[in-house]
């Protein structure tokens, strides 16, 4: 849920941090460092991984075999982070990622999760009526495409490798990365070639 924290929550955070500092558990620099690291994680990383996978079969194979190593190849510090798994869409299969039990999300390669991903509506409905949820994102799958919902319940974090859309032949890695949005990386939308013009 988006929204403003209660005043008592703001006060609780101050008291918690003050107590942790007083007791020598942490210093302000620790908090700043972790916040900087979290802010550095952006969907552009996941998008660049997808674009590379579309162009480079070897990287694609690595990414599907070991998403963590593929992220590290893009300079993402994965030590201590949950392992990253990548699921490959095909012409017949579409992946949609949700976490029904909490809100597991591949933050290392996408960044902070959007509010809707953590909402009760998305968590309750994506596993039960995925096509209706996709439609609310304006996503209608071609006939014959099976939906595989990925309920992210445990130790991995999951990212989708979408299919490369028609009309992108000959594009550079940068051009391709530009049409892969955050929402494509969890499967609620599909990359489309027209987006490049809209974004321009």
């Amino acid at each position: 849920m988006a929204g403003t924290p209660l005043p008592e929550s703001v006060e609780l955070l101050d008291k918690l941090v003050a107590a942790l500092k007083r007791r020598g558990v942490l210093v302000e620099e620790d908090i700043a460092r972790c916040q900087t690291q979290a802010e550095r994680a952006q969907p552009e990383t996941g998008a660049r991984m997808v674009a590379r996978a579309w162009l480079d079969p070897e990287f694609r194979a690595l990414m599907l075999r070991d998403g963590t190593a593929a992220a590290e190849a893009f300079g993402v510090a994965m030590a201590g982070a949950p392992p990253l798994g990548v699921l490959e869409d095909t012409d017949r299969l579409h992946h949609l990622v949700v976490c029904t039990l909490c809100s597991c999300y591949p933050r290392a390669v996408i960044g902070y999760p959007p509010h809707w991903y953590k909402s009760a509506a998305y968590r309750a409905r994506a596993v039960r009526e995925p096509r209706a949820v996709l439609a609310e994102f304006g996503t209608v799958l071609p006939a014959g495409v099976q939906v595989r919902v990925v309920d992210s319940t445990a130790d991995y974090r999951w990212m989708v490798l979408p299919t490369r859309p028609a009309g992108t032949e000959g594009w550079s890695e940068e051009q391709l990365a530009a049409i892969v949005t955050r929402d494509c990386l969890v499967g609620v939308t599909l990359p489309v070639a027209e987006n490049a013009r809209i974004a321009a």
């Binding site: 009760a120 309750a124 994102f137």
Partner: peptide, 15 residues
């Protein structure tokens, strides 16, 4: 444990 919870059946996801 929210998967399928009918309480949110009619709550739109707000992209």
């Amino acid at each position: 444990d929210l998967g399928g919870n009918p309480r949110f059946r009619c709550t739109p996801v707000e992209p």
